[in-house]
């Protein structure tokens, strides 16, 4: 299990990285944390001729908390974001989800933006980007553009990024005041990809539910958002858990794999959501 040969490019600016990307086109692959990519290379499931290693690119390792979002640069490691107190204060969902990403040694190297660019429907972060109505900032030979989450995830392991585009940052949207968030998942072993997971945001105003929205892990092809505001009812004291579970079951389309059947995952994600609603409303 050793990677095939490749040409290693180590740009130091975004412009250089983009120039390499332009030159090598679809023969290149961006290497950031590499925690998903390098196993694929070692198993020779992919053998790109060029790796554009962005770890030396200046300015991509910053977390910025803004009024409407938390902006995370492409070299911010999961651990860095997880431990960032201002990011947690601004958007607790980030930490709530990140603690479920693999294990600490992986989180120390793996990048949050890289996970999103990998777009594994079993990953935690795509669901977070979807639920926060986040935006991916892409730079390519044709310039910069913002790609909203709803357009970013095209299919399993497939994004709207062009082969010559680099995701330089993402902006996770912040929730309105009075929003409670949570993240729950169930995996066979700690740190494994979840059999099913849910990210949830419930906005309350004086014990009245103004909005309830969820996105999911491992049970939808792409992480989209389910609006549960109707199903859950208005009063925080008596949420309609059965209606929530029904709505979740109707929304998801989980596959069967070697670890669980689709039917099981459907049940599981509905139950995880039900329990998470109860937990958030009883905080």
């Amino acid at each position: 299990m050793k990677p095939a040969p490749f040409v290693h490019h180590a740009p130091t600016t975004v412009a250089e990285a983009v120039e390499v990307l332009r030159a090598v086109g679809s023969h290149g692959k961006i290497l950031a944390g590499g925690q998903s990519l390098i196993p694929i290379l070692s198993m020779r499931l992919a053998s790109p001729e060029h790796l554009i290693d962005i770890n030396g690119v200046a300015g991509l390792d910053r977390i910025e908390v803004r009024d409407d979002c938390v902006r995370v640069g492409a070299l911010v490691r999961h651990t860095q974001l997880l431990q960032d107190e201002s990011a947690y204060a601004a958007l607790p969902l980030l930490r709530q989800a990140l603690v479920h990403v693999a294990h600490p040694a992986i989180r120390n190297r793996g990048t949050t933006v890289g996970s999103l660019a990998h777009a594994d429907a079993a990953g935690e972060l795509p669901s977070v980007l979807a639920l926060t109505e986040g935006v991916v900032e892409a730079v390519g030979p044709r310039g910069s553009r913002d790609i909203p989450a709803s357009a970013f995830f095209v299919g399993p392991l497939e994004t709207a990024l062009a082969a010559d585009e680099l995701a330089v940052a993402v902006r996770f949207g912040r929730f309105p005041e009075g929003t409670r968030t949570g993240f729950a998942e169930s995996a066979r072993r700690s740190g494994d990809y979840a059999l099913a997971g849910v990210a949830l945001a419930i906005t309350l105003q004086d014990k009245v539910i103004r909005s309830a929205r969820a996105s999911f892990v491992s049970v939808t092809d792409v992480p989209d958002v389910l609006d549960l505001s109707g199903a859950i009812g208005s009063y925080a004291a008596v949420p309609d858990l059965d209606a929530v579970a029904d709505a979740v079951r109707a929304h998801v389309s989980p596959d069967t794999d070697i670890h669980a059947t689709g039917d099981y995952r459907r049940m599981l994600v509905a139950e995880l959501t039900r329990r998470l609603v109860t937990e958030l409303l009883s905080r």
Binding site: M43, R188, R189, S190, G191, D192, I258, H259
Partner: peptide, 16 residues
């Protein structure tokens, strides 16, 4: 063999 890796052959960690 569909689970020929430590990703999918679920040898227990301490947590299990």
């Amino acid at each position: 063999l569909l689970n020929a890796s430590f990703m999918d052959f679920l040898m227990p960690y301490a947590s299990e």
